[in-house]
């Protein structure tokens, strides 16, 4: 058993445990923290997959930015008696049906992927990974790159407008 295997198993385990914890914990903050583990182990998996740059971005964006935003969201909207309330919606039957469907879906997809193998291809992704990405991004993918930047800008402006207090509301206060 190679070291790569060990690393994969460990990281996968942490990621799945993080996900399961996220489902089962009762406090919202704890859920977000559990998910941070998942995000970081996914970053580790990216490293295993010769994607150092994506791994770095993963840590920065998910573990950093998005988790922080979520925490802000939780704190800004926090309920007083959060603990006493149930954390899930729907009745038993809906949850059971959803769970069965998720399992069925998982099983069906599993049947499709568990033997999928395209063989070992000599890709040299781990050599100067960031450089390769940069070259591709600023040459071949320049237009999607520009578009995504516009989307980010729009999202930024939209988020500010949405989150801003209404004028009427501000005047009332």
């Amino acid at each position: 058993m190679s070291g790569e295997y060990l690393a994969f198993l460990a990281l996968a385990l942490v990621a799945i445990i993080g996900g399961v914890l996220m489902l089962n914990l009762s406090k919202v903050v704890h859920m977000v923290i559990a998910l941070v583990f998942t995000f970081i182990s996914i970053a580790g998996l990216y490293v295993l997959l010769s994607a150092e740059f994506v791994a770095a971005v993963q840590v920065l964006i998910y573990s950093g930015a998005i988790t922080i935003i979520m925490l802000f969201g939780i704190m800004l909207t926090r309920h007083r008696e959060e603990d006493k309330e149930k954390t899930t919606t729907g009745g038993f039957w809906r949850k059971a049906l959803t769970a069965i469907s998720v399992f069925a879906f998982g099983a069906a997809v599993y049947l499709g992927v568990y033997q999928l193998d395209f063989g070992e291809n000599a890709a040299r992704l781990h050599e100067k990974n960031a450089e390769q990405i940069g070259t591709a991004l600023y040459s071949h993918y320049i237009i999607p790159f520009e578009i995504i930047s516009v989307i980010l800008l729009v999202a930024l402006v939209g988020a500010i407008i949405l989150a801003k207090k209404d004028d009427g509301e501000a005047q009332k206060k």
Binding site: L76, T77, L152, A155, A159, I161, L162
Partner: peptide, 12 residues
């Protein structure tokens, strides 16, 4: 990331 930002704004 954009989705998270907008989602949070809607939530607020």
């Amino acid at each position: 990331a954009a989705e998270a930002a907008v989602g949070l704004a809607v939530l607020m």
